[in-house]
Amino acid sequence: MSNEDILNPKQMPREPEKATLEGKNKFIGFWFFLGGETVLFASLFGTFLALRNSTAGGPGTEELFGLELVFIMTMLLLTSSLTSVYAMYHMKNNDFGKMQVWLGVTVALGLAFLGGELYEFNHYIHEYEFTFRSSALGSSFYTLVGFHGGHVLFGLLWIVTLMVRNAKRGLNLYNAPKFYIASLYWHFIDVVWVFIFTVVYLMGKVG
């Protein structure tokens, strides 16, 4: 396939993200990468579970956590996963405009989630003096949840970069895999959050 056909395909195939060898490689390579990321987060979860009662005289999880904000954040992130599915649906239908709109919604929801997380951290630090350095629980909590937040931030920058870069030229076989794996990454972030919500917050509150 010549470079011209990739940038300006005469007809978009049904699965543009896997139409070229590069696209196929990216697709499977990114799944492997997510496998590695799973081990990364599993290690962080393991560390948190080992240290979740190590309060060193400071506040424990039951005292700290309020489920209202975390529930709202969970809903925001779950919804953003859904909107990114809509975006990919429109990508497969070769409707660039609608894809951009839904990606925009995804980014907005992601930003709202991050805002909630910043508020939450700020709250713990100033109201409870619960910090990264105050206890082993603090270290492991901020590391696990912070790693996830860092992933969210990186995902937002990534999606925005893709949206801006391709705003003028629309979809082709070169950028379709890029959009697709960005959405895969976004789903992964969402899945990790489901575990954080369960293991950190729910178990911290009632477990």
Partner: peptide, 30 residues
């Protein structure tokens, strides 16, 4: 296997360079 090392090294980096207490038994570390 490598992501486990990545996390281990991050924890040690945070302990040595940013004051976290993962491995500081006095603050509840392990």
């Amino acid at each position: 296997a490598f992501p486990a090392l990545t996390v281990g090294l991050f924890l040690m980096m945070f302990d040595r360079m940013f004051g976290s207490v993962f491995f500081d038994v006095a603050a509840g570390g392990n």
